[in-house]
Design a protein around this nucleic acid. Structure first.
Length: 599
DNA sequence: CCCCCCCC
């Protein structure tokens, strides 16, 4: 029944692969045929770290232990490799880990399966002492084993200042090893970030290194930043050694490695010009159409045409009060969707392309404001008109057809389609009860829109006397004959009144107290706070009726909900970002749209 | 040793 296949194992393979290192010129030529005698899963004790597999590799005469690179785990999980499988080892390496040699299989090709063990192999480690090794397998080998020496051989034969450290695959780095060099491409380099905490001021930057076995994040602090920042360029390849390997805090990184590197004063980094064997960034593009299904905060890769470049703007960070430049781009792709991509900081300032370039971004964060949006984070990378197939195809499509196409928008600023009502998404309105039921994180705000009727407003302190200097808005104190701003250290003859309003907004499910600033008051009262203040001082009846007019008004409001702790009391504050009187024409047509969707 | 990734 079964076909008799006579597999020829490569005798001497075990001794030889035990000597292999990544840049060993012979190792890539020596692709032995071996048999796996056993496969054992070493379960990961961490949710974000894959299980590992240990193989017993036999050359028919000897066997050694080896680890399967985790990117090959699938071969075991899908049954391609099992006990007694015969395979050609195409790529492998060997390191000393805790004084033990450990072979890592990086690539292999399955040749076939046999029902049993070939030959009667014995343990290479057990039978062979390092000093006596040459006697062990040399008679039968197809490639001569190297003379085993306790010290690893030189890593970089062509470099003048050789180090006695082997080139390691990134995948094999661990805190247990200190003599190693990796050869890796910088796929991401951050700006220099400054921080201050209890221990004082500091600065840092980080990079992502990648080789064909994996990637790893590296961070440099303080004086090491000065030393290395300008010497490391995104896209280039370097030899890196004598960095510290630490356990990665993975919740802060989307780099797929359980370890990360700390670049120290003693770390050696040297550019490598032979980059042929190093992979470039790999993308896993999500079509813009499929963003609908992307989870908030997911890190994804996207490629699109820049349909629109918005002006440079800025935001004031609510947590740090710092002003941060930002620029929105509208990306489109062949799936017929558009999405907003926000660039920050230097990248926002430096972006100047005026045509419609292709942009490929890796590791951008998905937001859910008014639909779906994308935001660059410090570990994201952006590539303009990258020389990759997807980019050429996209450019061809846009030039021939795409530039005339219309797109379904994922986000508010993109305009069109789902968003109407003066920028408030009528399709995603929440009732006041739904607002109260929202799950709020302890520090992150949530945004929502509602339609409410104003039932009350806090009558006292609708307005406050504010500093009239541009952008100050601070409350000023009455000196009797003048008004003083403590912040600007100036006095003014008259203040500029500004609104600070508390509305009670109700719907059929309940009510919420909503805070609004000056822009909201302007909409609600239809006059400036100065004018309302004049009425209050000079025409009390007119003032009362102006206030009463707001009561019972119906508004669409775009709001921000945020937890707030004051005097040990935690409560949720609701701020109005935008307030628009109900427009019956817009609202009715929206209701008609909804009805027709049911028909 | 950062770990915030900002705003609507």
């Amino acid at each position: 029944m079964s076909m008799e296949v006579d597999y020829k194992l490569t005798f001497g393979a075990c001794a030889r692969i035990t000597q292999a290192t990544m840049d060993d010129p012979d190792a890539s030529d020596f692709q032995p045929t071996v048999q796996f005698l056993s496969i054992k899963m070493l379960p990961s004790n961490k949710a974000d770290t894959p299980d590992r597999y240990r193989l017993i590799v036999s050359d028919g005469k000897y066997f050694v232990q080896a680890m399967l690179a985790t990117q090959l785990n699938e071969l075991i999980q899908n049954g391609a490799i099992k006990k007694h499988t015969v395979a050609v080892l195409e790529k492998y390496t060997s390191n000393v880990v805790q004084n033990k040699r450990l072979v890592i299989v990086l690539a292999l090709r399955v040749v076939g399966d046999t029902p049993e063990k070939i030959g009667t192999p014995e343990s290479l480690e057990g039978s062979v002492k390092p000093s006596a090794e040459s006697a062990a397998g040399s008679s039968a080998v197809t490639a001569p084993p190297k003379v085993q020496a306790p010290a690893p051989h030189a890593a970089r034969p062509n470099q003048t200042n050789e180090r006695a450290t082997p080139i390691f695959p990134i995948e094999a780095l661990s805190p247990f090893q200190n003599k190693w060099t990796i050869k890796a491409r910088v796929t991401q380099k951050s700006d220099i970030k400054h921080y201050s905490n209890q221990k004082g001021e500091g600065k840092l930057f980080n990079v992502t290194f990648m080789d064909d076995t994996g990637e790893i994040k590296a961070t440099a602090f303080n004086h090491v930043v000065d030393e290395l920042y300008d010497r490391i360029e995104e896209g280039k390849v370097y030899y890196i050694s004598r960095a510290r390997v630490n356990i990665a805090k993975r919740k802060f990184s989307n780099v797929d490695n359980q370890y990360e590197l700390s670049l120290e004063k003693s770390t050696e980094i040297e550019e490598c010009l032979d980059t042929t064997d190093l992979p470039t960034v790999k993308y896993n593009f999500v079509q813009l159409k499929d963003l609908e299904a992307a989870a908030k905060d997911a890190m994804i890769d996207v490629i699109g045409i820049v349909k629109e470049t918005h002006d440079l703007g800025e935001v004031i960070s609510r947590s740090t009060q710092k002003t941060i430049p930002k620029r929105d781009l509208t990306l489109v792709d062949r799936s017929g969707y558009s999405v907003r991509l926000t660039l920050w900081g230097e990248q926002a300032k430096k972006y100047t392309a005026t045509d419609h370039p292709v942009i490929a971004v890796k590791g951008v964060k998905v937001g859910d404001f008014g639909g779906k949006s994308l935001s660059m984070v410090s570990s994201s990378t952006m590539s303009l008109n990258p020389d990759i197939t997807d980019a050429h195809a996209l450019k061809g499509w846009f030039d021939s057809a795409g530039s005339e196409a219309s797109f379904q928008s994922h986000s508010l600023s993109g305009g069109g389609g789902a968003f109407q009502g003066g920028g408030i998404n009528l399709s995603e309105m929440k009732t006041t009860q739904e607002v109260k039921d929202m799950n709020l994180g302890s520090d992150k705000p949530e945004y929502f829109s509602s339609r409410v009727v104003i039932t009350h407003l806090r009558a006292e302190n609708i307005m406050y006397p504010a500093c009239p200097s541009e952008g100050c808005n601070k409350k000023v104190t009455d000196l009797g004959d003048a008004w003083k701003c403590e912040k600007c250290e100036r006095t003014f003859e008259n203040p500029e009144y500004r609104y600070l309003v508390s509305f009670c907004g109700a719907d059929h499910t309940g009510q919420l107290w909503l805070q609004g600033f000056n822009d909201v008051g302007l909409i609600a009262f239809g006059m400036s706070a100065n004018e309302l203040k004049n009425l209050e001082d000079q025409d009390r009846d007119a003032y009362d009726s102006a206030v009463k007019r707001v009561i019972s008004g119906v508004f669409n409001v775009a709001c921000r909900a945020k937890q707030d702790t004051y005097n040990d009391m935690t409560r949720v504050r609701y701020g109005i970002n935008r307030m628009i009187p109900l427009d019956f024409t817009v609202d009715t047509s929206h209701v008609l749209d909804q009805l027709s969707a049911y028909a």
